[in-house]
Amino acid sequence: MANTTRNSVATLFGISALACLAAGRAQAQRQLVMYCGVDEKWCRAIATTYQKETGVQVDMTRMSAGEVYARVRAEKDNPHGDVWFGGTGDPHLQAAEEKITEAYQSPMLPKLRDWAQRQAERAHNRTVGLYLGALGFGYNTEEVKRRRLAQPACWADLIKPEFKDEVQMADPNSSGTAWTMLATMVQLMGEDKGFEYLKALHKNINEYTKAGAAPALAAGQGETIVGIAFQHDVIDVAEHNKPVAVVSPCEGTGYEIGSLSLIAGAKHMDEAKKFYDWALTQEAQKIAATTGSFQIPSNPLTPVPPEAPDLSKIKLIEYDFAKYGSSETRKRLLGKWTDEVKNAPK
């Protein structure tokens, strides 16, 4: 008995010593640390494809845009990440404002679509547009049919009493998607009217989720009838055989410019720059659609998949990224929203 005990102690120690060795093994390989703000499947495909094509070991962490920003900011004195791929543009702009991302003019820049180049201008080349995604909402077609509701088509439909407790959106305090929604309402209707709308909407909201894409999924699963999210997120859910239809609101809608930044002080800056150039090529950008992400790519040569929302049918507003990406506006509006809308009685 004592012998087996001794053996098992020895085995346990042996195993952990092996694990120590494995953990400490040298990494002579070229590497790149990527913080990734888009869908997990897309992130993984980007990492493995790049690794396959160049031999660079890509170390990818998938986080929400807010989490990436928080991490880059926390690590600014001793950065561990090299490149920040994707995620809503606002945190990228804010990072650029704080100069925690690196200015870099890619040779690919002039070949990109206008909005991607404008994004780079706004940030003094500290970021660049990677894709465009329009805001909208999805609704559960089965539930709408079962309850004999009119199909919602406009923002105004969502505050109708028949959608009481049936609308879901993310909390703009934690989600870039929901912040885009808040900023869109303010720009579409003016601040006062916009907040009136949000207060009316509050009565119909069943939950402010933490993650931006969650309402789209919830609508697909029937947890809610309407989920406010980016249209490409809704399409992704619909592609998985869920009964959900995407709506581009009739009043017009805001959009995000998913961006790409280099982290200032990156340990593998040269590798990061090479990756940056690669990520803007059509070969890299067409990966998105194969993994179920249907944003509009910033490289015009990238084939737009048929599932992607048709930009010509979407009424985009003149989204003021400079104003609504600045930390002051953000802090003020978020404070006001939390106080007057989120904490308000229903």
Binding site: Y69, D171, S174, K210
Partner: peptide
């Protein structure tokens, strides 16, 4: 859901949009 407790609020104060 919408019920906030301290442990999650701490998390979102760090990673949320208000940072």
């Amino acid at each position: 859901g919408n019920f906030n407790v301290l442990s999650t609020d701490i998390f979102f104060a760090v990673v949320g949009a208000s940072h």
